[in-house]
Design a protein around this nucleic acid. Structure first.
Lengths: 174, 174
DNA sequence: TTGATTCCTGACGTTGACGTAAACTAGGGC
DNA sequence: GCCCTAGTTTACGTCAACGTCAGGAATCAA
Protein backbone atom coordinates (compact mmCIF):
# COMPACT_ATOMS: atom_id res chain seq x y z
CA UNK A 1 0.00 0.00 0.00
CA UNK A 2 2.99 2.25 0.25
CA UNK A 3 4.43 1.21 -3.07
CA UNK A 4 4.13 3.06 -6.31
CA UNK A 5 4.69 6.42 -4.76
CA UNK A 6 3.55 8.24 -7.85
CA UNK A 7 5.12 6.43 -10.69
CA UNK A 8 8.79 6.95 -11.33
CA UNK A 9 11.84 7.78 -9.25
CA UNK A 10 10.37 6.12 -6.21
CA UNK A 11 13.62 4.63 -5.08
CA UNK A 12 15.56 7.75 -4.30
CA UNK A 13 18.25 9.06 -6.57
CA UNK A 14 18.10 6.88 -9.61
CA UNK A 15 20.86 8.67 -11.50
CA UNK A 16 20.74 6.78 -14.73
CA UNK A 17 23.91 8.34 -16.17
CA UNK A 18 25.63 8.67 -12.84
CA UNK A 19 26.36 5.21 -11.49
CA UNK A 20 29.08 3.08 -12.99
CA UNK A 21 28.61 -0.54 -14.06
CA UNK A 22 28.78 -2.09 -10.57
CA UNK A 23 25.98 0.04 -9.14
CA UNK A 24 23.50 -0.72 -11.91
CA UNK A 25 19.81 -1.06 -11.36
CA UNK A 26 18.76 -4.28 -13.04
CA UNK A 27 15.29 -5.51 -14.00
CA UNK A 28 13.63 -8.34 -12.12
CA UNK A 29 14.70 -11.07 -14.50
CA UNK A 30 18.36 -10.35 -14.13
CA UNK A 31 18.13 -9.86 -10.38
CA UNK A 32 16.33 -13.16 -10.07
CA UNK A 33 18.90 -14.97 -12.16
CA UNK A 34 21.78 -13.48 -10.19
CA UNK A 35 20.26 -14.59 -6.94
CA UNK A 36 19.24 -17.97 -8.29
CA UNK A 37 15.52 -17.57 -7.81
CA UNK A 38 12.52 -16.89 -10.04
CA UNK A 39 10.95 -13.53 -10.76
CA UNK A 40 7.76 -14.78 -9.18
CA UNK A 41 9.68 -15.41 -5.99
CA UNK A 42 10.86 -11.79 -5.89
CA UNK A 43 7.33 -10.49 -6.35
CA UNK A 44 6.22 -12.86 -3.63
CA UNK A 45 8.93 -11.66 -1.26
CA UNK A 46 7.86 -8.12 -1.95
CA UNK A 47 4.25 -8.94 -1.21
CA UNK A 48 5.30 -10.39 2.12
CA UNK A 49 7.36 -7.33 2.91
CA UNK A 50 10.71 -9.04 2.76
CA UNK A 51 12.25 -6.87 0.09
CA UNK A 52 11.19 -3.76 -1.76
CA UNK A 53 13.21 -3.09 -4.92
CA UNK A 54 15.32 0.00 -4.41
CA UNK A 55 14.07 1.58 -7.61
CA UNK A 56 11.48 1.58 -10.36
CA UNK A 57 11.56 2.49 -14.02
CA UNK A 58 9.45 5.40 -15.24
CA UNK A 59 6.95 2.83 -16.41
CA UNK A 60 6.75 1.19 -13.00
CA UNK A 61 8.95 -1.84 -13.59
CA UNK A 62 11.01 -3.03 -10.62
CA UNK A 63 14.71 -2.23 -10.55
CA UNK A 64 17.10 -3.97 -8.17
CA UNK A 65 20.58 -2.95 -7.11
CA UNK A 66 23.43 -5.04 -5.75
CA UNK A 67 22.30 -4.65 -2.17
CA UNK A 68 18.89 -5.98 -3.14
CA UNK A 69 20.45 -9.01 -4.74
CA UNK A 70 22.56 -9.56 -1.65
CA UNK A 71 19.42 -9.34 0.44
CA UNK A 72 17.76 -12.00 -1.67
CA UNK A 73 20.73 -14.29 -1.18
CA UNK A 74 20.57 -13.58 2.51
CA UNK A 75 16.89 -14.50 2.59
CA UNK A 76 17.68 -17.77 0.85
CA UNK A 77 20.37 -18.53 3.40
CA UNK A 78 18.02 -17.93 6.27
CA UNK A 79 15.55 -20.20 4.54
CA UNK A 80 17.70 -23.12 3.46
CA UNK A 81 20.46 -23.00 6.01
CA UNK A 82 18.49 -22.14 9.10
CA UNK A 83 15.07 -23.43 8.09
CA UNK A 84 13.13 -20.29 8.91
CA UNK A 85 9.82 -19.69 7.17
CA UNK A 86 9.27 -16.42 5.36
CA UNK A 87 7.33 -14.93 8.25
CA UNK A 88 10.18 -15.48 10.63
CA UNK A 89 12.59 -14.16 8.04
CA UNK A 90 10.53 -11.02 7.74
CA UNK A 91 10.90 -10.46 11.46
CA UNK A 92 14.62 -11.11 11.35
CA UNK A 93 15.10 -8.71 8.48
CA UNK A 94 13.10 -6.11 10.34
CA UNK A 95 15.42 -6.54 13.24
CA UNK A 96 18.42 -6.12 11.00
CA UNK A 97 16.90 -3.05 9.37
CA UNK A 98 16.16 -1.58 12.77
CA UNK A 99 19.76 -2.23 13.56
CA UNK A 100 20.82 -0.04 10.67
CA UNK A 101 18.54 2.71 11.93
CA UNK A 102 19.96 2.36 15.40
CA UNK A 103 23.44 2.56 13.97
CA UNK A 104 22.65 5.86 12.33
CA UNK A 105 21.08 7.25 15.46
CA UNK A 106 24.07 6.05 17.41
CA UNK A 107 26.44 7.94 15.17
CA UNK A 108 24.45 11.17 15.16
CA UNK A 109 23.86 11.24 18.91
CA UNK A 110 26.40 11.92 21.59
CA UNK A 111 24.00 11.23 24.45
CA UNK A 112 25.73 8.56 26.50
CA UNK A 113 22.64 7.06 28.09
CA UNK A 114 20.84 6.77 24.80
CA UNK A 115 23.91 5.27 23.20
CA UNK A 116 24.00 2.65 25.88
CA UNK A 117 20.35 1.82 25.27
CA UNK A 118 21.00 1.52 21.57
CA UNK A 119 23.96 -0.75 22.04
CA UNK A 120 22.02 -2.95 24.42
CA UNK A 121 19.14 -3.33 22.03
CA UNK A 122 21.39 -3.94 19.05
CA UNK A 123 23.31 -6.50 21.01
CA UNK A 124 20.09 -8.22 22.01
CA UNK A 125 18.77 -8.36 18.46
CA UNK A 126 22.04 -9.73 17.22
CA UNK A 127 22.36 -12.21 20.04
CA UNK A 128 18.97 -13.75 19.42
CA UNK A 129 19.93 -14.87 15.95
CA UNK A 130 23.39 -15.81 17.10
CA UNK A 131 22.08 -18.23 19.71
CA UNK A 132 19.80 -19.91 17.19
CA UNK A 133 22.63 -20.33 14.73
CA UNK A 134 24.92 -21.53 17.48
CA UNK A 135 22.57 -24.24 18.67
CA UNK A 136 21.94 -25.44 15.15
CA UNK A 137 25.61 -25.45 14.41
CA UNK A 138 26.24 -27.41 17.59
CA UNK A 139 23.78 -30.11 16.70
CA UNK A 140 25.14 -30.33 13.21
CA UNK A 141 28.65 -30.61 14.56
CA UNK A 142 27.53 -33.53 16.70
CA UNK A 143 25.93 -35.26 13.77
CA UNK A 144 29.03 -34.68 11.71
CA UNK A 145 31.24 -36.13 14.39
CA UNK A 146 29.42 -39.45 14.45
CA UNK A 147 29.47 -39.62 10.67
CA UNK A 148 33.17 -38.96 10.58
CA UNK A 149 33.76 -41.53 13.25
CA UNK A 150 31.97 -44.11 11.16
CA UNK A 151 33.91 -43.05 8.12
CA UNK A 152 37.13 -43.51 10.02
CA UNK A 153 36.09 -47.03 11.02
CA UNK A 154 35.40 -47.95 7.41
CA UNK A 155 38.77 -46.58 6.45
CA UNK A 156 40.49 -48.57 9.13
CA UNK A 157 38.74 -51.78 8.18
CA UNK A 158 39.62 -51.22 4.56
CA UNK A 159 43.24 -50.66 5.43
CA UNK A 160 43.33 -53.91 7.40
CA UNK A 161 41.76 -55.73 4.50
CA UNK A 162 44.31 -54.28 2.12
CA UNK A 163 47.03 -55.77 4.28
CA UNK A 164 45.33 -59.18 4.33
CA UNK A 165 44.68 -59.41 0.61
CA UNK A 166 48.15 -58.12 -0.13
CA UNK A 167 49.53 -60.87 2.09
CA UNK A 168 47.24 -63.52 0.62
CA UNK A 169 47.72 -62.33 -2.95
CA UNK A 170 50.06 -64.65 -4.82
CA UNK A 171 51.57 -62.43 -7.51
CA UNK A 172 51.90 -59.14 -5.66
CA UNK A 173 53.55 -56.48 -7.76
CA UNK A 174 56.24 -54.78 -5.69
CA UNK B 1 1.09 -52.58 -1.07
CA UNK B 2 3.32 -54.88 0.90
CA UNK B 3 1.81 -54.04 4.23
CA UNK B 4 -0.68 -56.06 6.18
CA UNK B 5 0.95 -59.35 5.42
CA UNK B 6 -2.06 -61.32 6.53
CA UNK B 7 -3.25 -59.58 9.61
CA UNK B 8 -1.37 -60.10 12.83
CA UNK B 9 2.20 -60.97 13.75
CA UNK B 10 3.53 -59.20 10.71
CA UNK B 11 6.47 -57.69 12.49
CA UNK B 12 8.46 -60.79 13.27
CA UNK B 13 8.63 -62.27 16.74
CA UNK B 14 6.26 -60.18 18.76
CA UNK B 15 6.74 -62.02 22.04
CA UNK B 16 4.16 -60.25 24.13
CA UNK B 17 5.19 -61.78 27.44
CA UNK B 18 8.84 -62.02 26.57
CA UNK B 19 10.21 -58.48 26.40
CA UNK B 20 10.96 -56.51 29.55
CA UNK B 21 9.85 -52.94 30.12
CA UNK B 22 12.49 -51.24 27.99
CA UNK B 23 11.69 -53.30 24.90
CA UNK B 24 7.96 -52.63 24.99
CA UNK B 25 5.85 -52.31 21.90
CA UNK B 26 3.81 -49.17 22.31
CA UNK B 27 0.71 -48.02 20.40
CA UNK B 28 0.85 -45.18 17.94
CA UNK B 29 -0.25 -42.49 20.36
CA UNK B 30 2.54 -43.14 22.80
CA UNK B 31 5.14 -43.51 20.08
CA UNK B 32 4.04 -40.22 18.58
CA UNK B 33 4.19 -38.45 21.90
CA UNK B 34 7.62 -39.83 22.67
CA UNK B 35 8.96 -38.63 19.38
CA UNK B 36 7.17 -35.32 19.57
CA UNK B 37 5.01 -35.76 16.50
CA UNK B 38 1.36 -36.56 15.78
CA UNK B 39 -0.13 -39.97 15.08
CA UNK B 40 -1.13 -38.70 11.67
CA UNK B 41 2.49 -37.96 10.94
CA UNK B 42 3.47 -41.54 11.72
CA UNK B 43 0.80 -42.93 9.41
CA UNK B 44 1.99 -40.47 6.78
CA UNK B 45 5.59 -41.59 7.17
CA UNK B 46 4.47 -45.17 6.82
CA UNK B 47 2.54 -44.37 3.66
CA UNK B 48 5.67 -42.82 2.20
CA UNK B 49 7.73 -45.84 3.17
CA UNK B 50 9.84 -44.09 5.76
CA UNK B 51 8.97 -46.29 8.67
CA UNK B 52 6.97 -49.46 9.11
CA UNK B 53 6.05 -50.18 12.72
CA UNK B 54 7.96 -53.20 13.91
CA UNK B 55 4.83 -54.92 15.12
CA UNK B 56 1.05 -55.07 15.06
CA UNK B 57 -1.55 -56.15 17.56
CA UNK B 58 -3.73 -59.13 16.75
CA UNK B 59 -6.37 -56.68 15.66
CA UNK B 60 -4.07 -54.87 13.29
CA UNK B 61 -3.14 -51.83 15.38
CA UNK B 62 0.38 -50.50 14.93
CA UNK B 63 2.95 -51.20 17.62
CA UNK B 64 6.24 -49.33 17.79
CA UNK B 65 9.43 -50.29 19.63
CA UNK B 66 12.27 -48.10 20.84
CA UNK B 67 14.17 -48.40 17.59
CA UNK B 68 11.10 -47.15 15.75
CA UNK B 69 10.87 -44.13 18.00
CA UNK B 70 14.56 -43.46 17.49
CA UNK B 71 13.99 -43.68 13.76
CA UNK B 72 11.24 -41.09 13.97
CA UNK B 73 13.51 -38.75 15.86
CA UNK B 74 16.15 -39.37 13.24
CA UNK B 75 13.71 -38.50 10.48
CA UNK B 76 12.86 -35.28 12.24
CA UNK B 77 16.52 -34.38 12.51
CA UNK B 78 17.10 -34.97 8.85
CA UNK B 79 14.09 -32.79 8.20
CA UNK B 80 14.64 -29.85 10.50
CA UNK B 81 18.38 -29.85 10.83
CA UNK B 82 19.37 -30.69 7.29
CA UNK B 83 16.31 -29.50 5.43
CA UNK B 84 15.69 -32.66 3.44
CA UNK B 85 12.20 -33.36 2.18
CA UNK B 86 10.58 -36.68 2.98
CA UNK B 87 11.46 -38.14 -0.39
CA UNK B 88 15.12 -37.49 0.12
CA UNK B 89 14.87 -38.80 3.64
CA UNK B 90 13.33 -41.99 2.32
CA UNK B 91 16.35 -42.47 0.10
CA UNK B 92 18.77 -41.75 2.91
CA UNK B 93 17.03 -44.20 5.22
CA UNK B 94 17.13 -46.81 2.48
CA UNK B 95 20.84 -46.28 2.25
CA UNK B 96 21.18 -46.68 5.98
CA UNK B 97 19.04 -49.80 5.94
CA UNK B 98 21.12 -51.24 3.15
CA UNK B 99 24.09 -50.49 5.29
CA UNK B 100 22.70 -52.71 8.03
CA UNK B 101 22.18 -55.47 5.51
CA UNK B 102 25.70 -55.08 4.27
CA UNK B 103 26.96 -55.21 7.81
CA UNK B 104 25.27 -58.55 8.32
CA UNK B 105 26.60 -59.93 5.09
CA UNK B 106 30.01 -58.64 6.03
CA UNK B 107 29.97 -60.54 9.28
CA UNK B 108 28.70 -63.79 7.81
CA UNK B 109 31.12 -63.81 4.91
CA UNK B 110 34.80 -64.37 5.02
CA UNK B 111 35.34 -63.71 1.33
CA UNK B 112 37.93 -60.96 1.26
CA UNK B 113 37.02 -59.50 -2.12
CA UNK B 114 33.35 -59.29 -1.26
CA UNK B 115 34.19 -57.77 2.07
CA UNK B 116 36.18 -55.09 0.34
CA UNK B 117 33.29 -54.34 -1.97
CA UNK B 118 30.93 -54.09 0.96
CA UNK B 119 33.21 -51.73 2.85
CA UNK B 120 33.64 -49.54 -0.18
CA UNK B 121 29.92 -49.25 -0.75
CA UNK B 122 29.18 -48.66 2.89
CA UNK B 123 31.85 -46.05 3.01
CA UNK B 124 30.41 -44.38 -0.05
CA UNK B 125 26.89 -44.31 1.32
CA UNK B 126 28.10 -42.90 4.58
CA UNK B 127 30.34 -40.38 2.94
CA UNK B 128 27.60 -38.91 0.81
CA UNK B 129 25.62 -37.82 3.83
CA UNK B 130 28.76 -36.81 5.64
CA UNK B 131 29.77 -34.39 2.93
CA UNK B 132 26.34 -32.78 2.90
CA UNK B 133 26.38 -32.35 6.64
CA UNK B 134 29.93 -31.07 6.53
CA UNK B 135 29.20 -28.39 3.98
CA UNK B 136 26.14 -27.26 5.83
CA UNK B 137 28.03 -27.18 9.06
CA UNK B 138 30.80 -25.19 7.41
CA UNK B 139 28.45 -22.55 6.11
CA UNK B 140 26.73 -22.33 9.47
CA UNK B 141 30.05 -21.96 11.19
CA UNK B 142 30.89 -19.07 8.91
CA UNK B 143 27.60 -17.39 9.63
CA UNK B 144 28.11 -17.91 13.32
CA UNK B 145 31.58 -16.40 13.17
CA UNK B 146 30.36 -13.14 11.72
CA UNK B 147 27.55 -12.97 14.25
CA UNK B 148 29.96 -13.54 17.09
CA UNK B 149 32.30 -10.94 15.73
CA UNK B 150 29.51 -8.41 15.73
CA UNK B 151 28.54 -9.43 19.22
CA UNK B 152 32.10 -8.89 20.36
CA UNK B 153 32.10 -5.41 18.86
CA UNK B 154 28.94 -4.50 20.74
CA UNK B 155 30.44 -5.79 23.92
CA UNK B 156 33.57 -3.75 23.39
CA UNK B 157 31.63 -0.59 22.66
CA UNK B 158 29.52 -1.13 25.73
CA UNK B 159 32.58 -1.58 27.87
CA UNK B 160 34.07 1.66 26.57
CA UNK B 161 30.82 3.43 27.30
CA UNK B 162 30.75 2.07 30.81
CA UNK B 163 34.13 3.64 31.39
CA UNK B 164 33.00 6.99 30.01
CA UNK B 165 29.77 7.24 31.98
CA UNK B 166 31.56 6.14 35.12
CA UNK B 167 34.08 8.90 34.56
CA UNK B 168 31.45 11.49 33.70
CA UNK B 169 29.14 10.48 36.54
CA UNK B 170 29.32 13.04 39.35
CA UNK B 171 28.59 10.90 42.41
CA UNK B 172 30.56 7.85 41.34
CA UNK B 173 30.86 5.23 44.00
CA UNK B 174 34.56 4.47 43.94
C1' DT C 1 8.14 2.65 -36.03
C1' DT C 2 7.95 -2.01 -35.40
C1' DG C 3 8.31 -6.38 -33.62
C1' DA C 4 10.23 -9.35 -30.20
C1' DT C 5 11.08 -9.63 -25.33
C1' DT C 6 10.31 -8.67 -20.82
C1' DC C 7 7.47 -7.02 -17.18
C1' DC C 8 2.99 -5.84 -15.04
C1' DT C 9 -1.09 -7.39 -12.30
C1' DG C 10 -4.49 -10.61 -11.18
C1' DA C 11 -5.95 -15.12 -10.46
C1' DC C 12 -5.98 -19.89 -10.29
C1' DG C 13 -3.07 -24.36 -9.89
C1' DT C 14 0.34 -27.32 -7.49
C1' DT C 15 3.20 -29.71 -4.17
C1' DG C 16 4.62 -31.17 0.35
C1' DA C 17 3.40 -32.23 4.84
C1' DC C 18 0.49 -32.78 7.34
C1' DG C 19 -4.66 -31.44 10.13
C1' DT C 20 -9.29 -32.71 10.75
C1' DA C 21 -13.74 -34.94 10.47
C1' DA C 22 -16.53 -39.20 9.85
C1' DA C 23 -17.80 -43.71 10.52
C1' DC C 24 -16.25 -47.77 12.39
C1' DT C 25 -13.44 -51.23 15.33
C1' DA C 26 -10.19 -52.91 19.23
C1' DG C 27 -8.91 -53.40 23.78
C1' DG C 28 -8.81 -52.80 28.69
C1' DG C 29 -11.34 -51.72 33.27
C1' DC C 30 -15.72 -52.44 35.86
C1' DG D 1 -21.29 -57.78 28.78
C1' DC D 2 -20.67 -52.80 28.65
C1' DC D 3 -18.46 -48.62 28.11
C1' DC D 4 -15.01 -45.51 27.07
C1' DT D 5 -10.76 -44.38 25.13
C1' DA D 6 -7.69 -44.99 21.52
C1' DG D 7 -6.98 -47.01 17.18
C1' DT D 8 -8.35 -47.91 11.94
C1' DT D 9 -9.26 -46.27 7.05
C1' DT D 10 -11.04 -42.89 3.81
C1' DA D 11 -11.40 -38.53 2.38
C1' DC D 12 -11.50 -33.80 2.20
C1' DG D 13 -9.22 -29.33 4.13
C1' DT D 14 -5.22 -26.26 4.87
C1' DC D 15 -1.05 -23.57 4.70
C1' DA D 16 3.28 -22.08 2.81
C1' DA D 17 5.82 -21.07 -1.14
C1' DC D 18 5.79 -20.64 -5.01
C1' DG D 19 4.41 -22.16 -10.56
C1' DT D 20 1.74 -20.99 -14.39
C1' DC D 21 -1.37 -18.77 -17.42
C1' DA D 22 -4.01 -14.75 -19.35
C1' DG D 23 -4.26 -10.24 -21.11
C1' DG D 24 -2.14 -6.07 -21.43
C1' DA D 25 1.70 -2.48 -21.09
C1' DA D 26 6.85 -1.31 -21.23
C1' DT D 27 11.49 -1.86 -22.99
C1' DC D 28 14.81 -2.57 -26.37
C1' DA D 29 17.36 -3.79 -30.74
C1' DA D 30 16.86 -2.88 -35.51
Amino acid sequence: MAKHVTGAEAGGTVGEGDGATPGRLVPIGEAAERAGVSARTLRWYEELGLLVPSGHSSGGARRYDDADVARIVHIRELQSLLGFDLGEIRDILRGEDDLVGLRNEYRSRSDGTRRREILLEASSINDKLRSVVASKQQRLAGMLATLEEKQARYGKLLAELEGETAAAEPGAGR
